[in-house]
Design a protein around this nucleic acid. Structure first.
Lengths: 234, 234
DNA sequence: CAGTGGTCTAGACCACTTC
DNA sequence: AAGTGGTCTAGACCACTGG
């Protein structure tokens, strides 16, 4: 239960930074000196420092030493839960509904992403995710059957493709693209909102070793969904 | 130039995971055995493993060992640049324009965030950021003068409050909230778009040791701005 | 209670880069 | 060239927890 030493060192240094005691660009003592000050091994200081550097608080350079980082604009960490979990967390009843399943030639952007030959088809799914009596998310997805041929057998009638893909495709990288759009006629009908309604759109591209697996376009009514950043680590 | 040993171990293990050679939930050998396999010290394996765990690829538990993590839905890392840098990166000309500067009693939500007494005023800035001849971002910001009294002296006529705050307030935590809204009359006028236009909205709350510093409401025309996730680390 | 991961040390050497 | 951070080792002990 006792706090690890490297963490104690880390928070001590972080306090000096956050209190304004050390200003932007100010140098910190070198690792060896700090190790002596804290009465510990240099590796212990090093680990504390490396975490501070990873989190963007300090910048380290060989020979030049360690300084308080200048740009406070560090990254933002979001966690995006699965849509059914998100709805469950709101104490709403989740319901899945498939609207379309077809094999078709995808639009050009998807053909490029999947590296398909001319005229080659992919699996196209349109579905929606209800929270009680509102449509929470409208999903339009293409699945690369070259990379995931097993998907061709799946009806995706009672559960969404994302659910199945997460369990059957090995670890993959996911790229997100977040934007705001106005509902066009198809969006409006699918989401049961008026044309022109503000929508939060998530574009999601999943890439595994075998290539680009799937491209999804996920739209939420603006008033139902927002993304919040995670609390920053201590 | 030669790759550090711990990184080589890490990518070797990651390849086994990503290739599907190891499926979700499968156990990995313990650190000591892997150290023997790779012919290195246990700490080297440990460091590789810790990074894999931090990045969400594996789950480690004492006594139970290390397993391939189940939930592929790891966090999303965004980097949000300063608005002037963002505009510069698009090869557009940046221009700042202040619309309003006043000391006033803020709305209830801000009063709570700042922990102000009844009737106590804060600094209110409204401004916009142009990219060439389009309004790229409309900013509505409250600054807590209890926490940053120096801000009261600043006109914020030629540069934005964010710029100044980043340089004059010690390291702070930032919380973001991303949503899509329709432009109301004030938004429409400020952004030079039609009422009902889809806007990408960023709510940003900055908290330092001295308490909540500032609350900002940043709106972009939906078609001008989207947020992309950063590439995941190797 | 035994085996796993987590922390720590003392010492060494290396890589980089600024002085 | 010298001083900084970065990596690595061999060994040790501890904390936690599943069998």
């Amino acid at each position: 239960m006792t706090k690890p030493l490297y963490k104690a060192v880390k928070t001590t240094l972080l306090d000096r930074i956050r209190s304004g005691d050390l200003a932007f660009g100010d140098p910190l003592p070198n690792d060896a000196d700090l190790a002596e000050e804290f009465g510990c091994a240099r590796l212990t200081v090093y680990r504390a420092m490396r975490e501070l550097a990873d989190e963007g608080y300090v910048e380290r350079r060989r020979r030049a030493g360690t300084r308080v980082a200048t740009r406070a604009s560090r990254g933002v960490q979001l966690s995006i839960a699965r849509v059914d979990e998100e709805i469950f967390a709101r104490n709403a009843v989740y319901r899945y509904e498939r609207l379309l399943r077809e094999k078709a030639v995808p639009p050009a952007a998807v053909v490029t992403a999947f590296a398909l030959k001319a005229g080659q088809k992919a699996l196209h799914i349109r579905c929606r995710h209800w929270a009680d009596d509102r449509v929470f998310q409208l999903e339009d997805r293409w699945i690369n059957l070259e990379a995931v041929p097993e998907a061709a057998e799946r009806p995706f009638l009672h559960y969404g493709p994302n659910h199945w893909l997460l369990e059957h495709v090995p670890f993959s990288e996911v790229h997100h693209d977040i934007s705001a759009v106005c509902a066009d006629a198809a969006d409006a009908e699918g989401l049961k909102v008026a044309v022109g309604h503000a929508l939060l759109r998530l574009g999601r591209t999943t890439v595994s070793k075998a290539g680009c697996i799937t491209v999804a376009d996920l739209k939420h009514p603006g008033e139902l969904f927002s993304l919040c950043s995670d609390p920053q680590p201590a």
